[in-house]
């Protein structure tokens, strides 16, 4: 039987098979038992889709890029979610752009999802990020406090990221730091965040009516529960003490452990060994470079220099 949702997907050239494959990927990412993809598909078909307001502050747009690099996921989920405000993607400019944001806040109060990309500068009255004559902080306060939920994508929106690296010239903070007590706030760190995790977080909400379980740092456990080092496909080389000692040496060509080259996998919790990047093509360690720890707290200061080996694991 063809549902209105299936018809909508078909109009955009997405087959039922693509949709079920997508649900399978989501179920696997969320760590749901085998065979739950079909149940997920049923819940998604019936779910009410909230609008999204996507705020960019002190950012490099890499989280938006990460999001846009997965056209299949976006077709399946975000075309039917309405993206009401996204500075890089929306048609209106200037006052009309701000009107789109304010209209959504007013018409969908408490019903829209606010995605925040980039840090919020707090030094010198917030002058280091101004949009439409207003500070990032005041826009975040207004938009996040009226949202159904706020999702902080990327490290900058989580803990201030690169702008907050020493000496943090602009007083940059993440959403949680700039707006204490904001709830619910879901943090999806990573530099950039992985779109599979953003999609899975929203899919989980649409299917269950609540947000996935999070750790003490506000990160969903399904994506940040495991240490990269423990799950690394090169971990057996670490155990056997087979290390890369120089770029291009025989060990490097053999795909041995990158610990001695400065890999920060032992300090980083993220599922990028599982979901990978660029449509599941590869990930840093798979490409022969150590992990820089981009999903770890304050990694720009805590885990640099990036090419110096950790002193313990």
């Amino acid at each position: 039987m063809r549902t209105p949702f299936a018809e909508k997907l078909e109009q955009r050239g997405v087959s039922r098979r693509d949709f079920l494959k997508f649900c399978g990927l989501m179920a696997a990412t969320l760590g749901l038992p085998a065979g739950s993809g079909r149940a997920l598909a049923q819940s998604l078909e019936a779910a009410v889709r909230p609008p999204i307001v996507w705020l960019e502050f002190q950012d490099c747009t890499a989280d938006s890029e990460s999001f846009l690099r997965e056209p299949t996921l976006i077709n399946l989920l975000f075309d039917s979610l309405s993206l009401d405000y996204h500075e890089t993607l929306m048609a209106p400019s200037g006052a009309q752009a701000e009107k789109s944001r304010l209209d959504t806040i007013r018409d969908y109060a408490g019903q829209y999802i606010c995605v925040v990309e980039g840090s919020i500068p707090t030094a010198d009255g917030g002058v280091y990020a101004m949009i439409g004559g207003r500070t990032a902080l005041s826009i975040a306060q207004e938009t996040c406090s009226n949202a159904l939920a706020t999702i902080a994508v990327g490290n900058c929106a989580w803990d201030g990221g690169i702008a907050a690296a020493a000496p943090n010239p602009t007083g940059a903070k993440g959403v949680g730091g700039a707006l204490p007590g904001l709830s619910p706030l879901i943090n999806l760190p990573g530099c950039p965040m992985n779109v599979v995790n953003l999609t899975a977080t929203i899919v989980y909400f649409l299917a269950n009516g609540q947000w996935p379980e999070r750790d003490s740092l506000g990160r969903p456990r399904f994506a940040y529960g495991e240490e990269i080092h423990e799950e690394c496909p090169r971990h057996h080389h670490y155990e056997a003490e087979r290390f890369v000692l120089a770029w291009g040496d025989q060990g490097h060509r053999n795909g041995w452990c990158l610990f001695r080259m400065g890999c920060k996998g032992p300090r980083t919790r993220h599922n990028c060994w599982q979901v990978k990047w660029n449509g599941g093509t590869n990930w840093p360690i798979g490409a022969g470079h150590g992990c820089i720890g981009c999903a770890a707290p304050n990694f720009w200061d805590n885990l640099s220099p990036f090419y110096t080996a950790l002193t313990d694991d």
């Binding site: 960019e56 747009t61 500075e87 890089t88 993607l89 400019s93 752009a97 101004m130 949009i131 004559g133």
Partner: peptide, 13 residues
């Protein structure tokens, strides 16, 4: 005055 200028990377006025 046009601020923000959209469909670019960054915040331009």
């Amino acid at each position: 005055v046009i601020d923000p200028l959209t469909r670019i990377e960054g915040h331009l006025r």
